[in-house]
Design a protein around this nucleic acid. Sequence first.
RNA 1: GACCCGUUCGUCUAAUUGGUUAGGACUCCGCCCUUUCACGGCGGCAACAGGGGUUCGAGUCCCCUACGGGUUGCCA
Length: 426
Amino acid sequence: MSLPVRTRFAPSPTGYLHVGGARTALFNWLFAKRHGGTFVVRVEDTDAARNTEEARAAIFEGLEWLGLDWEDPEHEGDCGPYYQSQRTDIYEEWFQKLVTADRVYEDEGAWRFCFERKPITMNDLVCGEVVIDYTDESNTPDMVVRRSDGSFVFHFVNVVDDLTMGITHVIRGEDHLMNTPKHLQLIEALGATPPKYAHVPLILNGDGSKMSKRDEGAALGDYPKQGFLSSAVVNFLALLGWSPKDEKEIFSAAELIGKFSLESVNRAPARFDPEKCRWVNQQHLLGLSPDDFVASCASEASPAMLLSIQEKITLLTEVPDAVSFYLDPEFPTDPLALEKVKGNDLAATLLSKLVENFESLDDWSQAKEIIGTTAKASDAKPGQLMFPLRIALSGKAGGPDLGAILEILGKAECVRRLARFTALLK
RNA sequence: GACCCGUUCGUCUAAUUGGUUAGGACUCCGCCCUUUCACGGCGGCAACAGGGGUUCGAGUCCCCUACGGGUUGCCA
């Protein structure tokens, strides 16, 4: 029988979590969960120069925000340490195996691993069978596995870690495809069984260029700041380079786990589309329960106010602006919208009649009906009154449903705002 | 340069073992619903990189070219 699935994400601390790395982590997590396995995170911090506390924190904060869970000392893992900088004893021990097997030799103080000169075949779960020929030494010189200062290089520690941590599936970026035969050779020399490999395509900018730190959408830490829901980002990232192969597009993490498979991962790199990412976010916002939506807004505004804008916003960052007119008695009026109403005599008369009708209204729940009857009494369409009324009450051309605004503001405040607006019209 | 991977609407993508009017989604544009704003519904614009084969028949298989990406470190 096959071993319990263990996948891993092995970032190096660079100060931020790249969206491509986040997606790689997500695929590893989805695959592990799909097969009832475990997702391991280990930090490749052998390059001491950029290994800072904040750099490490950025990784874990990002993964946590996405809602992933992983194995480490705090999460019942016993394959630690999970930092390469703390595993030198292990590396030393495994390095001796290469020495014993006579597969390394000294070269100017460093140690090189000598490749077997033969074609190496890999069966990638995404790319299929790929053969790299190691016969020609000039293309594939023996690689350094231990530097002259005694430290070990990436290829060696990466392989030893995967082996000792019991990793069964290595899912990583396509930039590692050409590293795989090197790793396979190392594993063979160590007398171990290699994990299965899956190389997923990279994420590019909208124009096809490589995504770097400053590009839009590159840093995962920016998403919460920009008002994205983590569930939406998970959903969007999963759809970048992978397809559930049906018409549905909006998924919860649990649904993704149920559908994920490496066979459906694409080979071609995907381009990042901020527009669609926002649409996915809007869909997730729409799908939130009232309580969850209110909680996500993290706003001073009342639940009724917030709920009135749930289907009007795309990003959470729009919330303060969308509800500000409720809270600010002296809210600003959009000049453009005001201009549209200003030259309109009909609007002015309708509004003044509406004020009278509002004032004599005992049952405020009838307010919305009154709009229609007021307009009709003057032979006008209700729409001709509703737009000016919207400007009068909110200062904006768009916003929540008028009925909701009327109800939330209440009679006195509506009448007051109407009077204020009439003054503005002059 | 060498080696590797890739190429379907502008973007994300679907297309049972070769037989489709090449499907869906985002964006944009119409229409409908709505006495307002949205949501929603319906419809439209828009793609098999190019060229050769194989085949009765190719987006699907093979080759070449072009373009894109990756790798070629005592970085990870």
